[in-house]
């Protein structure tokens, strides 16, 4: 590199390194260091794995950890199943103006804060809510029905919140599939189902993977939806992190929880990329 490009290079590299170093890398190392220490007495700490031991032996913690993981996978799967036909409709069946309008309609709810979306579901599902009133009016229930504060309500909210992040990548990949390829599939004697399985889904795979990764991440890291829509039994792992940090001021255990969440999400994202032979750059970039 010549001298002046060298200066330019350093000038451009500095903000990147400061940003990643000071706000991402060092804080995470620090969080890890906090998580592997134990408070012996006031201001005296010792390195130990006590926090992780506590996290892995206490049934409540462990149960919440796995529940959060399983429910997030479930939310991702449901989102995919709901979003796929709609994305296919937008990408392949709708044409011209209609296509644009439908796509825009998918985007609109997500310009609105997650808090507002969750609030909407609370108004709909609570005891005095719209759905309860509708059921009474239709004669299906003879008293107000509480539909909030359970896993189903939470799932509805989770799926709703992350829908966009599934629809957009799916529509983008499905649009790039040439109609004539589908026609060829039918001409060669394929049925609707075999064309779907052997042509459409394989072609949409990149979109499916990136959609699933983002939706999974968002569900796993969600705090609002489980707190507002979920019940007492639907404790989410992020709520435990919040409780340890803010309510109990037990930073050591909270940091350990945070690190476990980070590892869980990295492992699952890495696994999904590995399974489909893709890289993070292709999927996110």
């Amino acid at each position: 590199m010549r001298a002046h490009t060298r200066i330019g290079f350093i000038l451009l590299l500095t903000p990147l390194v400061l940003w990643l170093g000071l706000l991402i890398i060092i804080p995470h190392i620090d969080m890890f260091l906090i998580s592997i220490r134990e408070r012996i007495s006031f201001g005296v700490y010792e390195t130990s794995l006590a926090q992780y031991e506590k996290a892995l032996t206490e049934p409540l913690y462990l149960r919440t950890f796995w529940r959060t993981a399983v429910m997030s996978v479930l939310a991702t799967a449901i989102t995919l199943v709901i979003a796929f036909p709609v994305s296919y409709y937008i990408a392949k069946m709708a044409k011209g103006r209609l296509q644009q309008v439908l796509f825009m309609l998918c985007l609109i709810p997500f310009y609105v804060s997650e808090l507002v979306r969750t609030f909407g579901w609370m108004i709909l599902l609570r005891e005095t809510g719209l759905v309860s009133n509708l059921l009474q009016w239709a004669g299906l229930a003879d008293q107000p029905v509480e539909m909030l504060y359970n896993d189903a309500a939470m799932m509805v909210g989770l799926v709703y919140t992350s829908m966009l992040f599934m629809v957009v990548p799916l529509v983008t990949t499905l649009e790039s599939l040439d109609d004539s390829v589908i026609e060829a599939g039918y001409d060669l004697g394929g049925s609707g189902l075999s064309v779907l399985r052997e042509i459409i889904v394989p072609h949409a795979m990149p979109g499916i993977v990136s959609g699933c990764i983002v939706v999974f991440m968002l569900s796993l890291g969600n705090y609002l939806t489980p707190t507002m829509l979920g019940g007492k039994d639907s404790l989410w792992f992020t709520e435990m992190i919040y409780n340890q940090f803010i309510v109990r001021s037990n930073w050591e255990l909270g940091a350990a929880f945070g690190f476990m969440l980070l590892v869980l999400s990295s492992v699952i994202v890495w696994g999904m990329l590995r399974l489909t032979g893709r890289t993070l750059q292709e999927t996110m970039g």
Partner: peptide, 18 residues
């Protein structure tokens, strides 16, 4: 790209801790 795959809560607490 990493900040996109780190849960927001974890980003928050790591910066809080640091």
């Amino acid at each position: 790209l990493l900040p996109l795959v780190i849960p927001g809560i974890v980003l928050g607490i790591s910066i809080l801790v640091f």
